[in-house]
């Protein structure tokens, strides 16, 4: 699916990277523990998380991820958005919980990666 579809499915608001919404993704990872994200690297392109500090973007960046979907209505601050924009990572925010967002994306075809 495209990142535009990820946003539609989770009813997320696009915070930055509007021009990159046609990017295709096939896998995602949901976690609030960045160490776990680093430990279970599986070529995921979307990070679903409720953490909003700069380390989240850095982690996504290290893993070559294309998009971060912040859950539970959290909006990151300017610094986070700036690092993401500089590195072509799309930032979106949904009011869904982590469980809801992951469930919806999984049921529409996103997988955990391999």
């Amino acid at each position: 699916m495209t990142l535009r579809e990820v946003a539609n499915i989770t009813q997320a608001q696009i915070i930055s990277g509007q021009e990159l919404l046609d990017t295709e993704v096939i896998s995602a990872c949901g976690s609030d523990m960045m160490s776990d994200v680093l430990a279970h690297v599986k070529n995921q392109s979307v990070l679903v998380t409720g953490l909003i500090n700069p380390q989240v973007v850095r982690t996504a960046l290290m893993m070559d991820m294309k998009c971060i979907c912040f859950v539970r209505g959290k909006i990151p601050d300017e610094k986070v958005i700036e690092i993401a924009s500089e590195n072509n990572i799309v930032i979106m925010a949904t009011k869904n919980t982590m469980f809801e967002a992951c469930g919806k994306l999984f049921s529409r075809g996103l997988r955990g990666g391999d």
Partner: peptide, 16 residues
């Protein structure tokens, strides 16, 4: 831990 670290995976990940 609030930053998303401190899961006890640092050194094991580095080794891995």
């Amino acid at each position: 831990r609030e930053l998303g670290f401190g899961a006890g995976m640092g050194l094991p990940n580095m080794k891995k």
